[in-house]
Amino acid sequence: SSGGSSILDRAVIEHNLLSASKLYNNITFEELGALLEIPAAKAEKIASQMITEGRMNGFIDQIDGIVHFETR
């Protein structure tokens, strides 16, 4: 797709992000992006959206560029 990722790509990214949230206590956007094979800024945006929508527990430290995952 030309304008970003398809629905399937997005679903795969979100699935992998949720998997990462179970493996890590926290991770930088750079590391997360590398893990998900997407730019760091996109990793931040998707993580932020999932947390806001209540689909993933955690919070974002924008100063240090880190996602902190919280286990249920």
Rank of each mutant, 00 (worst) to 15 (best):
H68W: 13
K45G: 08
I38D: 00
D9G: 05
D61F: 04
Y24H: 07
S19W: 11
S21C: 04
H15L: 11
E14F: 04
G54T: 02
A40I: 07
R10H: 12
D9T: 06
M56E: 02
L36T: 02
L35W: 08
E53S: 08
P39M: 04
A34R: 14
Q62K: 14
T71M: 11
Q49P: 00
E70H: 12
I63E: 10
N25T: 13
Q62G: 07
S6M: 09
I46E: 02
F69I: 02
E44D: 02
K42Q: 15
A47S: 05
L18T: 05
L35E: 02
S19D: 09
G33K: 02
A41W: 14
G4L: 09
R10A: 10
V67S: 02
E70A: 09
A40R: 06
V67T: 01
G58Q: 02
G4D: 12
E70P: 07
P39I: 04
S19F: 08
E37H: 15
S5Y: 04
R55S: 06
L18M: 08
S21N: 03
H15V: 10
V67A: 03
G3Q: 11
I66R: 15
S5Q: 12
A47W: 03
Q49D: 14
L18D: 03
A47I: 10
F29L: 12
A41P: 06
N57M: 09
E70I: 11
R72P: 14
I27D: 00
Q62L: 14
I66E: 05
Q62N: 10
A47P: 00
Y24D: 01
L35T: 02
D64F: 14
L36P: 00
I7K: 12
Q62T: 14
I13A: 05
D64M: 15
S48K: 10
S1L: 11
F29S: 02
N26R: 13
D9K: 06
I46G: 00
D61P: 01
S19E: 15
K22Q: 09
I51G: 01
L17V: 08
M56C: 03
T71G: 11
L36I: 04
L17W: 01
M56K: 00
N25K: 15
A41Y: 10
K22M: 10
A41K: 10
Y24T: 04
R55F: 06
K42P: 02
G54L: 05
S2V: 12
K42R: 14
I63D: 09
N26I: 08
E44V: 15
R72A: 12
K42I: 15
N25H: 12
E44S: 09
L18A: 05
K42V: 15
G3M: 11
F69P: 01
G54M: 05
R55E: 03
N16S: 09
N26Y: 15
S1Y: 04
V12A: 11
Q49T: 08
S1N: 14
N16R: 15
M56P: 02
R10V: 14
S21A: 09
E14N: 03
G65Q: 10
E44Q: 12
H68T: 06
R72V: 13
Y24C: 04
I46P: 00
S5L: 11
A43Q: 00
M56G: 01
T52W: 10
A11M: 10
T28A: 05
S21H: 04
E30T: 11
F29A: 02
N25V: 10
I66H: 06
I13T: 05
I7N: 14
E14M: 07
L17Y: 01
V67P: 01
L8P: 13
N26C: 09
F69D: 00
N25Q: 14
L36D: 00
H68G: 04
N57Q: 12
A20P: 00
M50W: 03
G58V: 03
S19P: 01
L17M: 13
L32N: 00
S48T: 11
I63G: 08
R72L: 13
S5F: 08
S19T: 11
I13Q: 05
G4W: 05
I38G: 01
E30A: 11
E14Q: 04
V67W: 03
G58L: 03
T28M: 03
V67G: 01
R55A: 05
P39Q: 05
Y24I: 07
G58S: 02
L8Y: 14
F69E: 02
I13V: 08
R55G: 03
T71R: 10
I51V: 05
K22N: 07
E53M: 05
S1G: 13
D9N: 07
D64C: 09
K45D: 12
